[in-house]
């Protein structure tokens, strides 16, 4: 379980996060949804310590991460896997080397074991034969999948995915959603997915936090989402024609 307690963050005059309270549960896919610019990525970066919050703290299964020194954070960091919004693959390394990288740095495995594990992860994201390519030679969707493979290489306890399927076709998006659900169950991970894709939300979410202008306006699950109640949430969820029709229970 990851808990955010009263997290606030401003950049200059601009208050991006305002007193965020959230909890992400183990073994579940926890979605964070919200409009573009609402502060989802900043919230994730505060959670993993890439941005220091101005106020509040984050705890990982009861361990207060924010209070830890850089050195002590390292231990928790190695339990975190993260897919960045822009993939953030190392462009001087091949796909295989990207996935092997965390293993090489921290696992103590032999080269053969590292290779095997990296190939295994690439297979999971259906990229078994892209290992020798460089990120620049991969499509955006492939880069996302390599990013996921790299994030799960170390068998993380906590997985963060910032828009795992933005820019993917619907079929690949579903494959990614399924993958995230599977590995979350399989390894009993605490998974946080940031998304504004309602398809994924309906497909893969166990819990949902809705962020609006730097605040969590609503939390719940898929069922609750359709029930509505919060106007900003309704605007977000039913922005698409498809969702409006689902609400009406009408024919698509």
């Amino acid at each position: 379980m990851i808990e955010l307690h009263n997290i606030s963050k401003s950049f200059g005059e601009h208050d991006v996060l305002k007193d965020i309270q959230a909890s992400f549960e183990r073994g579940k896919v926890n979605f964070v949804i919200g409009r573009s610019g609402s502060g989802k990525s900043v919230m994730t970066k505060c959670t993993v310590g890439l941005i220091e919050p101005d106020q509040g703290h984050v705890s990982y299964d009861g361990r207060n991460f924010t209070a830890l020194s850089r050195r002590d954070r390292k231990e928790i960091r190695q339990e975190i896997g993260m897919l960045f919004q822009g993939s953030a693959l190392f462009d001087s390394m091949t796909v295989q080397e990207n996935v092997s990288f965390p293993l090489k740095m921290f696992s103590g495995m032999t080269d053969a074991e590292i290779d095997r594990r990296a190939s295994e992860c690439l297979e999971r994201v259906e990229l078994a034969d892209a290992g020798s390519r460089f990120p620049a030679e991969c499509s955006g969707g492939m880069q996302k999948r390599v990013g996921i493979a790299r994030a799960i290489a170390m068998n993380p306890k906590y997985l963060f995915c910032d828009e795992p399927n933005s820019g993917l076709d619907p079929q690949t998006a579903i494959v990614i959603d399924q993958l995230i659900m599977e590995i979350t169950r399989e390894y009993n991970m605490t998974t946080v997915v940031i998304s504004h894709d309602m398809n994924s939300v309906m497909e893969a979410s166990d819990t949902i936090h809705f962020v609006h202008e730097g605040r969590i306006l609503w939390r719940g699950d898929r069922g609750g989402l359709l029930a509505g109640g919060v106007p900003e949430l309704e605007d977000f969820v039913f922005a698409s024609e498809l969702m409006r029709r689902i609400r009406k229970g009408g024919q698509i």
Binding site: K45, K74, R77, I80, G81, F84, G86, D91, M154
Partner: peptide, 17 residues
Amino acid sequence: GTMRVTEQIDALEIMGV
């Protein structure tokens, strides 16, 4: 600089590097 703006440095930090 490129590694910084494409978040590759963040990716290193996240891994604990």
